[in-house]
Design a protein around this nucleic acid. Structure first.
Lengths: 227, 227
DNA sequence: TAATATTAGTTATATATAATAACAAATTAT
DNA sequence: ATAATTTGTTATTATATATAACTAATATTA
């Protein structure tokens, strides 16, 4: 990497860091190229050498967020690779929540309403999105493949006409439909809890969200024959 | 209501209608007082006679959204008041999803990241928010009170230190903790599914979201001893 | 009814924003 | 050393929120 290229990367990182800080302080959509430039001590138009538009910057932030979440989940999964699958999965799902609470802005960029009229192209986000679920699906698949516990009955009998499958681009190891179904069910469970917590809809009702989350995930894993 | 007051209300409604249309067309945050004024054929500053700021307009829209959702749920509940509670509840929960899909912008205003740096004061939203859940909690409470089916065991044994209760302002009929717990569990289940569907995270995976939702809600009601 | 107060609009202005164009300086490649 | 590329600049366009100062229309009241 040339000297110039190196400084370019540093500048890009600085822009993204300031953008994230701005969003953390004043909300997801309060991101202003001019304000970032001012903080960097350069003119507004200079930023257009690095991101061709405000939306391009946001897209980059979204991709980074997906990758950061995936990194966190992968790290937890490998930290607990030696433990029982149910324990490992529980740790991964705890990390999922922890990351969402510690990085609310990034989590909203991924799963919330990103920004005005703005929609990141699927081609860009789908590959990184799949990184997020890979570790979880891997644990599920290995566990059930082991035969140590059977798949729950409910996962084997979907209503006629209803199928559950990963997009073609992401089907690296072919997984049984029942496993994917279980993954989707688990996903909407934790997603519902985390989203409601993040927007303060549950905090006035539930005394201890951490304990509640642990309790509900435990119930979920039991229902999935995972402990 | 005086003649002047009547026209004032009509104008306010027109502003809100155009704001909703704008958001529906270009995203939640793409709401511009100037653009609304232009469409109404008046000057920008004229709108400040009706809403003291952009945020005030958004707050009004949020309150309206809560009320519209509550109206829809109440209507469904009363339409099916004569049917079995499980059937009635299923219909209410189907309406919940239907409304979210038919009014994605309003649903995002309520449950998504509203807008930049913007946070509606709790005092304004809490009363209307409680309207949304009143019909659901009422059905649950009546049903279990009847004694026709027992409360599921899981609802009676929360981990020590974990309590679930409604905010004081909303506790008009005192409900047993187990019923509130069931309500919260049901809420995050449907919320997770609807949010993921709304932001197109499930559509590439699940072939028929309507069927999936029905199937999952049925499972939920069974787990709650409601059918 | 005539004078007064209130309301609803106007234009002008201050201050932001995103984005583009045209140009100059710095850096790199030849 | 010269030419090409990159990175910055200022100027400009178009748009946004919001306030101020003012005018016309509508209600209220003496």
């Amino acid at each position: 990497m040339s000297r110039r290229e190196k400084f370019r990367q540093i500048t890009i990182e600085e822009i993204k860091t300031l953008a994230r800080r701005q969003m953390a302080e004043a909300g997801t959509a309060s991101i202003s190229l001019n304000a970032i430039a001012r903080q960097m001590g350069i003119s507004g138009p200079a930023l257009y050498r690095y991101f061709e538009s405000r939306d391009a910057l946001i897209t980059a932030l979204i991709v980074d967020s997906y990758n950061a979440l995936a990194d966190a989940l992968e790290a937890t999964a490998s930290d607990h690779a030696a433990t029982a699958p149910a324990v490992c999965l529980m740790q991964v799902l705890l990390t999922y929540r922890r990351w969402a609470l510690d990085h609310p802005v990034d989590f909203q960029l991924i799963f919330g309403n990103p920004i005005p009229g703005f929609a990141a192209e699927e081609g860009v986000t789908q590959p990184v999105a799949s990184r997020v679920f890979a570790p979880i699906l891997r644990i599920l698949a290995e566990y059930y493949a082991n035969g140590s516990r059977p798949l729950p009955d409910v996962s084997r009998s979907l209503p006629p006409g209803l199928t559950v499958s990963l997009p073609e681009a992401v089907r690296s190891p072919a997984l049984p439909e029942a496993v994917i179904y279980i993954g989707v069910v688990g996903w909407y469970h934790i997603h519902g809890m985390i989203m409601l917590e993040l927007f303060h809809h549950l905090t006035p009702i539930v005394s201890d969200m951490e304990a509640f989350y642990r309790h509900e995930v435990t119930r979920l894993l039991e229902a999935m024959n995972l402990r």
